[in-house]
Design a protein around this nucleic acid. Structure first.
Lengths: 205, 205
DNA sequence: GTCTATAGGTAGATAGAC
DNA sequence: GTCTATCTACCTATAGAC
């Protein structure tokens, strides 16, 4: 899994995994060092403190997480196409980085102020304004049902993201392993988009 | 807020709040004692260890969380009525206990095996089987669009629960305080039900 | 750059007075 | 039942050899 990375990247990778499993307070520098295959002292050589290491990890995570969303939200495609693209790419992205949603939610609930400041500093602007205006316009033109754009956006994000933060529970309920879970989520891309389409389109297929 | 409870209940209430804010490892016995307005030694008098206190909290949380869901899922009401009731009661319940979703998600990702065992032991059986069969039947009768019952159930739960686990982020994005957030979630009850109704009903009104 | 050893601080748990 | 004081263990961070 961990290939020939330099020490700094090995630490970052290991730290991401451990922080995700244990949360900030639960994570031990020793465990991170073990997982990175290096010594504990080296952690402090590369990253002055645990806090500093965490900040590095978090920034990296958010720099991957944020822009993709914004990019799609603010593109010029027609609404339905945009939604389909968003659902597809968003779920794909979360499947590539399954550790991210729990990690972000953990810290969002742990230190909200710190997180919000960090997001703002990172230059990522979670601004679905353009998308919402597009929704409102289409509703006025009558091509989609009248709907509160904010709720629509949150509906879509919720349906995509929630299964990832609740993943262990879902696997337990459905009694499925990792491979079946992946298949389930792949299937879900079509399911969510179809659901949204049916909900907002005036004419049924 | 904390009225005239006996010491044990004061501790349980305080512990729930602190565990929710900080997670298991982040929570400090001292902070729990302070929040309960009692001494640290008393915590160990009532609950032998931190681990034991946590287990008590968790069981209590899940005993409230589970049955309400199951009850509605397995009632005899017509599908749409059942969904409306579920969305309404579910969001109401989460608004009364806003600390629960982050708390459960934290532990679900931290110690999945322990959680799953605990859920099973608690007698709560998250079994939406009856509801899914009802969905399938209505789809066959043609009263609703054909839909995968599993995805429908997850869609509904996701749209209700996700805004609670992502609450701090939502408040940051919408730039709203606690009161406005409550109003938003109250409004959301209608929004989610309307959305689901539009998505599954064959005839648009 | 990488390691070992250790200092310094903190948190869970216990003992014992009241 | 409730408190104060203290023990013990562990974890971050640093110092210093190689």
């Amino acid at each position: 899994m961990t290939k020939d990375l330099n020490t700094e990247n090995k630490i970052l990778e290991a730290a991401m995994r451990v922080f995700t499993r244990k949360g900030y307070s639960g994570a031990r520098m020793q465990e991170i060092a073990d997982e990175a295959g290096i010594n504990k002292g080296l952690l402090h050589y590369y990253f002055k403190s645990k806090d500093n290491l965490f900040a590095s990890i978090f920034d990296q995570a958010f720099r991957e997480f944020g822009p993709r969303t914004t990019e799609i939200f603010e593109s010029d495609a027609p609404l339905l196409e945009k939604i389909e693209l968003f659902v597809d790419r968003y779920i794909d992205f979360l499947m590539e980085h399954p550790y991210l949603p729990p990690f972000i939610l953990l810290e969002i609930n742990h230190r909200p102020e710190a997180l919000i400041k960090r997001i703002q500093d990172s230059g990522m602007r979670p601004n679905p304004m353009k998308l919402m205006m597009q929704i409102q316009m289409e509703a006025q033109r009558g091509t989609i049902r009248p709907i509160n754009p904010i709720h629509l956006v949150f509906n879509i994000i919720s349906m995509c993201a929630f299964p990832f933060v609740a993943r262990p529970m879902i696997q337990a309920i459905l009694q499925i392993g990792n491979e079946e879970y992946k298949a389930f989520m792949a299937d879900r891309k079509k399911a969510v988009f179809g659901f949204v389409k049916d909900a907002i389109l005036v004419t049924s297929d």
